[in-house]
Amino acid sequence: MTPLVFLAALFATSVMAGATGAILGLGGGILLIPILTLFYGVDLRYAMGASIVSVIATSSGAAAAYLRTSLSNIRIGLFLTLATVSGALVGAGLAGHVPVRALQLLLGLALGYSAFTTLRQLHVEIPQSLEADTLALRFSLDGTYYDAPLDRQVKYRAARVRQGFAAMFGAGLLSGLLGIGSGAFKVLAMDYFMRLPMKVSTATSNFMIGVTSAATASVYFAHGDIHPLLATPVAIGVLAGAMLGTRLMARLRNTTVRKAFLPVLAYLAASMILHGLGIELP
């Protein structure tokens, strides 16, 4: 592959990863790392460094647009990021002292169960509101956004805040222990536990992943794992893709976003269970 073709292919891949990440609330690492290593022969550490940069670029591009349109909820984002970052700090401290495989297996099974329940509520456009949660009232964890496909303002309020906060802490813990991103877990906690509309969940996750990844990225930078020749085309492509993704998301229904999210959830569950059983994927 000539350098120019390599750069063009890298840019196209990054645009795709950015658009997907913006819609699904993921950093894009789940797509980028396997593609960069398997198809482009990129060194794994550089691929991981580029992936963490892509998370922040996706977040900057997508969260800015989602915050402007109130699809991303800053209060919910900050409240839950507090749990994730605390979990990540504790996880980083515990690394090497906890049975990671058992944890992965447990989490994989929990994700598998969540994928099953998500499948059952695949056609739920706006979740039915449960009784008012005291923490949601205390911290104003509610909002309104204009839903273009439904052509109306959608009001929502977070439910089961304690469970959502605990799930976010768990996601952060895992992030700190295993050094993985946790965008999918954030979306799941907001969609499944807190009963937020799917689009609000993915849009708010986009804001959160940027904040949580900023601290992690400095570790990669200090270790020399962020190669500017790789990170630059990836960041440009991902930023462009994220902006494209936000435009697409405005036209999508919550059910469509949930349908697109389900395979990611299933893949993550399978991957976690296999890792937990000691079976390495190629």
Partner: peptide, 14 residues
């Protein structure tokens, strides 16, 4: 330098 600016952006947001 641009890369460091990108890493600092979400923190500046907070």
């Amino acid at each position: 330098l641009g890369l460091l600016g990108l890493l600092a952006t979400p923190i500046a947001g907070v």
